[in-house]
């Protein structure tokens, strides 16, 4: 599998990247780790005129705490994210999720920004992004802007990333300290992508009442989604197996569940319930 021809330019700053995008007038495509893009290039599913390599822009590699949020620069690899102290301490569900992406080689090279920008419906990362109220930070021709996951990813491989702009970082909410979290995944035996992946951040108050519940599901349809119906059924309830079981029945409510060769919509709806229940139990018990 050989890509078609393209030009290549390496840039050293975000501004330079934007300039190149402008100059190339729609023919340019950004490349960071390349682990989403290179496979597409090889199959000639995308044939850009030029690649703009942003992988060495230092300002995209930071991880920092900003108030109640953690900002992870787009160029951090999955391996770096999984092993970052700030991430592990404040948003462990992100570390747990990226640790389950692909394999060691892919995690060494694939970046968190590239993963979100690629918007693969079967990606793991969006589940964690959703439960951590991720904000996608973008730098464009007209300055910086921020989008949430729902408005950023609008379909399989389709995002609202404006023309001539760079996804610079993703910012995540730090959940309350009494919460716990988990990412539970059923890998496709061939691709390793989630047939379903459920991320949960949840907690109970001193009276054992569920006072925090974020649940997100990926892999089952065109886009990952927040299972808000489940969250609503949980919040304010006293923690019990029955409450979890009943709430989990609503796990497929908020998503558009799809069929594929490996699993039907009906089966995936079942997986939504079972995996949500198991993930909630893992977190709350």
């Amino acid at each position: 599998m050989i890509p078609s021809k393209f030009d290549y330019v390496r840039v050293n700053s975000i501004d330079e990247a934007i300039q190149q995008l402008q100059q190339l007038n729609g023919e340019g495509k950004l490349i960071a780790g390349g682990h989403s893009l290179v496979p597409l290039l090889k199959f000639r599913l995308t044939e850009p005129g030029a690649l703009i390599d942003i992988s060495r822009i230092a300002e995209l590699k930071e991880v920092r705490k900003e108030g109640n949020r953690i900002v992870v620069g787009a160029l951090n690899t999955h391996f770096q994210v999984a092993n970052n102290q700030i991430v592990k301490e404040h948003i462990p569900v992100l570390a747990e999720t990226v640790r389950q992406i692909g394999d060691i080689q892919v995690r060494n090279r694939g970046t968190i920004g590239g993963n979100i920008a690629h918007a693969d419906p079967a990606a793991d990362l969006p589940a964690a992004a959703h439960v951590l109220d991720a904000k996608i930070m973008i730098q464009g021709e007209d300055g910086a802007e921020t989008m949430d996951m729902e408005s950023f990813v609008i379909g399989p491989l389709i995002t609202m990333l404006p023309e001539n702009s760079v996804l610079t970082a993703i910012s995540f909410t730090i959940p309350p300290s009494h919460t716990k979290s988990a990412y539970l995944k059923f890998s496709h035996p061939a691709s390793g992508y989630p047939v379903i992946g459920v991320a949960v951040v949840a907690g109970v108050d001193e009276n054992n009442m569920i006072d925090y519940a974020k649940v997100a599901i990926t892999g089952v349809g065109d886009v990952a989604y927040r299972a808000t119906a489940v969250e609503e059924k949980l919040l304010g309830q006293e923690l019990s197996e029955t409450v979890i079981k009943e709430a989990s029945q609503y796990a497929a409510e908020d998503g558009e569940i799809a069929n594929d060769l490996f699993s039907s919509e009906e089966y995936r709806r079942n997986l939504c319930k079972v995996y949500t229940e198991r993930a909630l139990k893992a977190v709350l018990f």
């Binding site: 290549y8 390496r10 490349i31 390349g34 682990h35 290179v38 496979p39 090889k42 690649l51 390599d53 992988s55 080689q105 892919v106 060494n108 090279r109």
Partner: peptide, 10 residues
């Protein structure tokens, strides 16, 4: 890393 998924220029 998987060298089939990396461009030489990278």
């Amino acid at each position: 890393v998987k060298s089939c998924t990396l461009l030489t220029v990278q």
